[in-house]
Amino acid sequence: MIISNNTVDSLLKTHFFASLDDDSVKKLLACFREQNYSKGDVVLREGEKNQDLFFVIIGIAKSYKVSPDGKEQILSLFRSGDAFNMTMIIDSNPQVYTVEAMSPLTLAYISRSDLYELMNQNGKIYEAILRLFADQIRYLVTLVEDLSFRSVMGRVAKILMMYMSDLYTPHMRITQRDIAAMAGTAREVVSRALRALEDDGYIVIDHSRINITDPEALQELIDYSA
């Protein structure tokens, strides 16, 4: 096996592996490789072709697209256990988004050809792959819903909550630019939204720290902003 024990443990904890029998797990693990990235490294670039399926082991990565005028829209954040680049399983069209490390990052990956071979031998692996697709479709529908229906303040609040629950990833900090790219808006608008959230008593901004003073109230705001 070419991956570390820690990576094996992380992979076994994912939903993908949890549904598989011991034999498929063993065969799959034997095909995985792992790679480390530094913060800011590009893992996949839009327009290029990459035929590996990736799982995040340690750290956070973002997938994003850039508009013609240079505005970044973050599509997803991938954390430990999340998979990406599933579409490569279906066809070999170019990447539709760029994936970049937002922190030091360890990824495990398996090539399309190895995966195909194992999928053909075992229907359970097919099902596990389909579940990954279902998760992703569900997530993207939620993103469309947020961008279409939720107010900017609600979106910013939701992003803060996402980051707040992430206390265990000490490397992860967020800039107003990141929030803007996730909320699909301009940085100035995020700045105003943060100030409004502070004025309304949901958060306290102390220099480089955003303290969520009342998560329940913030969650209510998110729920009502849809």
């Binding site: 992430d166 206390l167 900090r173 306290v204 102390d206 720290r209 955003i210 303290n211």
Partner: peptide, 15 residues
């Protein structure tokens, strides 16, 4: 970059 935290020990949230 900001740290986003929920610190219950910090009553006024000032840090």
């Amino acid at each position: 970059p900001y740290d986003v935290i929920y610190d219950t020990s910090d009553e006024c949230g000032c840090g």
